[in-house]
Amino acid sequence: MATTHHEHHDDHGHDHAHHVIPISLLMKVFGGLIIGMALTVYAAIFGPKMPVQFMWLIAMLIAYAKAFLVVQYFMGVKYTTKLVKAFAYGGFFWATLLLIMLTDYGTRQWEPVPGWTPGEESALSRDLEIDRVPEDVQIHH
């Protein structure tokens, strides 16, 4: 962000924006994308059965890899200025801020809503309360 006077002018001088990506590289990237797509389908439909969180993880990792290929080569971010790189990846990063909302949904049951046994001291100690169910009570997991 703190581009100085000189860098600013270097920006003008550079020819990076004119970088021509060779067709062979484009084809390799396209091949990579097709392989990625085939992998996703294989993992989801034909692949070995795995725990569901793991399946989601794999699907999302492949999707991110494909997205990275597209951004880096098809969109040519690899060959642009740092500034454009910051914008390109900063946007993705910022979108993940929405995930903060999951904290709410993940910890809402810590709230002393009716049905919870009264907590000892703090509203946040209720998890312990559940752990204190007598051991002879059989809980099936």
């Binding site: 809503v113 009716p114 049905g115 919870w116 046994t117 169910v133 809980i139 099936h140 997991h141």
Partner: peptide
């Protein structure tokens, strides 16, 4: 049943509180 842990068909457990 109130305030007991219940096991569901999918194996998860749930506290039988008012909401449930």
């Amino acid at each position: 049943i109130f305030n007991t842990q219940r096991t569901m068909t999918d194996g998860s457990t749930v506290l039988a509180n008012e909401d449930y």
